[in-house]
Design a binder for these strands. Sequence first.
DNA 1: ATCTATCGCAACCCTGAGTTGCGATAGAGT
DNA 2: ACTCTATCGCAACTCAGGGTTGCGATAGAT
Lengths: 209, 209
Amino acid sequence: MQSAQAVARPIGRGAKVRAAVHAATLAELLDKGYAALTVENVAQRAGVHKTTVYRRWTDRESLLVDALAEHLATDIPVPDTGAIETDLRALARSFVQTFTSPTGRGILAAMFTGAAHLPQIAAARRHVFDDRLTRAEPVIARAIERGELPRDTDVAELLKTLAAPIYLRLLITAEPVDEATADQAVRITLAAARASALRPVYASKPTAE
Amino acid sequence: MQSAQAVARPIGRGAKVRAAVHAATLAELLDKGYAALTVENVAQRAGVHKTTVYRRWTDRESLLVDALAEHLATDIPVPDTGAIETDLRALARSFVQTFTSPTGRGILAAMFTGAAHLPQIAAARRHVFDDRLTRAEPVIARAIERGELPRDTDVAELLKTLAAPIYLRLLITAEPVDEATADQAVRITLAAARASALRPVYASKPTAE
DNA sequence: ATCTATCGCAACCCTGAGTTGCGATAGAGT
DNA sequence: ACTCTATCGCAACTCAGGGTTGCGATAGAT
């Protein structure tokens, strides 16, 4: 890694190159998919020589991971509408929006199908999920406080139940995904939560908080 | 395909080779994953020369597709226990069992992550899903007839709701999947169905509850 | 205007996909 | 047991893409 020099004095044109290559990587990913993502094509699209790419990134995979990480600055809003239904709807819709944009679909495909085997990608996936979990926690807590949900509702279980139908359509059945999908996921999740089906899974007895 | 000769007179050792290569393909897939699935390794493991593989299959992908198709003779039981809960539990558990065996996990990884881009694989996925749908239809129909579920329950929606949490854990969060996961999926699905959250999705009736 | 980190370029090596021609062999039919 | 031919083994290819190296050119901060 050349970060030492980057902090030092002569930064050079490094920043431009980095940005150009990142953009080219994403673009190639969307156009041709992960399988056809070649270093030469990326370099060419970035107006940069293949060697330069290899000087900044150790290999093709690290390039991809880096490019994805750059475009993964998650800025998920934490809704607080005063009602769990509208809050969940906001969460689900923002989730859908994130992954239905062209860029989102490309990133999704890369992360979950193409480069799924890379440990860094797996870590990124977990991070994204954990991030959403952290942000959603107070939303659920408020709903419980308002008496809209059972006290022993498992936040992680609830979020997974919310995300699962959307992921299924995005990655497995490849059905169109839109706001209706998000709203449907909310209906399912709320029904399950209200029926106390979203308690901590591996605890046989409900926990007294 | 050379199945024409197989039916004709001089069958030769073709059948043995086919079987050996199929087995080797699956084995390599489980050991090293799709990315590291090389024709030479498969050939070597099958005790066969690389050329022979290329004489029977056009390329690496067709080999994989063929091997998967061979091991995808789905024999899903159609439960009829007289109650929807136990029926669904049986369905979900058989689903979990299918994909948690070593072979199942390998096939899953190949179909949904490695070779997800291949049209034949996509078709196979759809076929597997449609197959399960067809088999599950009478199960749901009986439940509706018994008055256990709302009359306008959407069978496809219900099955997707049942499968979604399991797929999520298998492919996305990579959590352990066992009977508890299946049972949890059943709880969620039943709660949603009983709350009439699993009606046909794109029927645009704005809440006629 | 200078000076040096960075980039372009060409020439490499290596692995794995896919091909070809020829000689060896298994195995079905007699 | 003996053909006889479809099939297989083998070696020697081509080709594309990943990854490396040495050297000369250039951008850009001071």
